[in-house]
């Protein structure tokens, strides 16, 4: 007899629970069209990340010196850069790289920080002290500066950008997970679970973790934006992704020199894409928070 087989016993309750969430979600979106808008934007971003390279009008790497530094036009919606590459194609194609970097680093930090934090909050004692000390030490650095140091030390690769972004976010996840686990550590339902004969690990995994998941998912959505900004910032100062790869941070860096001479579109459109993506994740995170926890609206 395992709990799994038991759960199958009550599909009605499961679906009704899921239905209620969907219903509530629809209500929140109806009440707050901004969240609906953010969700639509999210779909567009995912579409560009998946299908971008197949739908863009130009090869993002093909230069055409004859058409260099042209402003936005019907042929080149976002204009062309100093090498005559189509800015629109490059912006769309870059979505995948930025999105994947952010997603990978958030998934990594969720696995590391989330679990470490939950264990620290629930077990307390030495686990708590070690995780807390680690988080404090990372927090003692300005985060972007630490990310710079890590990438510089580990080597200038995309993979290391993912690792650096994850490390830098570790304290945030560890702390949230820790405090959420900590307030539930002595909750009645946890004590009741002990009385029912659940071991400590079982309580952690079956009782505490599922209750913390919604909050962690909201946090993931909120930090997606930060992860994108972090990665773009690193490549803006020449770390990680290297030219001629299409990536928003690099494209802004390449266009920066032309800003003072009036060719604004080279830096503007990738910067705008970056902003819209981050904006979307922030709105989505706020919206998700409303769905998960209506009391925490600000």
């Amino acid at each position: 007899m395992t709990p799994l087989t038991f759960r199958r016993d009550e599909p009605a309750a499961r679906t009704s629970g899921l239905l209620a969430v969907v219903k509530h979600g629809r209500y929140v979106i109806g009440e707050n069209p901004v969240t609906g808008f953010a969700f639509a934007l999210f779909v567009v971003i995912v579409f560009a990340a998946v299908f971008g390279p197949y739908v863009v009008p130009y090869d993002p790497l093909a230069s055409d010196t004859a058409a260099a530094l042209k402003g936005p036009s019907a042929a080149h919606w976002f204009g062309t850069d100093q090498l005559g590459r189509d800015v629109f194609s490059r912006v769309v194609v870059a979505t995948r790289l930025d999105f994947v970097i952010a997603l990978a680093s958030v998934a990594l930090v969720f696995a590391m920080g989330g679990l470490a934090g939950v264990a620290a909050g629930f077990f307390g004692g030495w686990t708590d002290r070690i995780v807390g000390r680690l988080a404090d030490t990372i927090m003692a650095f300005p985060l972007f500066v630490l990310a710079m140091g890590i990438v510089a030390a580990l080597g200038n690769t995309v993979q290391n950008i993912v690792i650096a972004t994850a490390i830098v976010n570790f304290p945030l996840y560890a702390r949230i997970a820790r405090s959420e686990a900590n307030i539930r550590r002595d909750a009645g339902f946890v004590m009741a679970a002990r009385l029912s004969g659940n071991g400590e690990f079982r309580i952690l995994l079956a009782h505490i973790l599922p209750n913390i998941m919604p909050i962690m998912i909201v946090q993931m959505s909120l930090t997606m934006g930060y992860a994108i900004l972090n990665a773009a910032g690193l490549s803006f100062i020449g770390l990680g992704v290297r030219p001629p790869t299409a990536e928003w941070g690099i494209m802004v860096a390449e266009g920066a020199a032309f800003m003072v001479s009036g060719e604004w579109w080279i830096a503007f459109f990738p910067g705008l894409a970056l902003m819209v993506a981050v904006f979307c994740f922030n709105l989505l995170g706020d919206g998700l928070r409303d769905i998960v926890d209506p009391q925490r609206r600000t």
Binding site: G225, L229, A232, G233, F236, G249, V252, A253, G255, A256, M259, V260, G262, W264, A267, F268, G271, L272, L274, M275, V278, F279, N282, L283, D286
Partner: peptide
Amino acid sequence: TAGVSLPVFFTGLILVY
């Protein structure tokens, strides 16, 4: 919400422009 979404180097460039 908009403020936290602005990449700081992008804001700077826009202001310069």
